[in-house]
């Protein structure tokens, strides 16, 4: 069971208070009608499934009810950072691979 730091509550809380929200930073197209089926389909259905660093969305449903982002290693489940909507991650796959 994961221990997740909620950036709004500023506390480490048990995973059972949260739910997973999938890949982070997917921006809704501003003019959906102008997109081809394929482009709209990419936005709708296609998601990254990296082995390693992944930016993802979490929802503190039984806490502050805020969505936020986490950078998680999908291999070790280590959560490297959590940050608020509107913020940018400090850790990225390229940074980590350089460090290794």
């Amino acid at each position: 069971m994961l221990l997740i730091h909620c950036p709004h509550c500023r506390e480490d809380r048990e995973e059972e208070e949260f739910s997973y929200g999938g890949e982070a930073h997917i921006v809704r197209p501003l003019a959906p009608e102008s997109l081809t089926d394929e482009a709209w389909g990419d936005y709708l259905f296609f998601r990254k499934n990296p082995r390693g660093i992944h930016h993802e969305m979490w929802y503190h449903g039984t806490g502050c009810r805020r969505y936020f982002y986490a950078t998680r290693n999908t291999l070790t489940y280590a959560i490297l950072e959590t940050y608020c909507v509107g913020e940018k991650p400090l850790v990225s796959a390229s940074i980590v691979s350089t460090a290794l």
């Binding site: 921006v27 929802y59 009810r65 805020r66 969505y67 909507v85």
Partner: peptide, 13 residues
Amino acid sequence: LAWLELWQQTEWP
């Protein structure tokens, strides 16, 4: 409710 919050918080703050 979670759905409303999702859109308000992440897409249209």
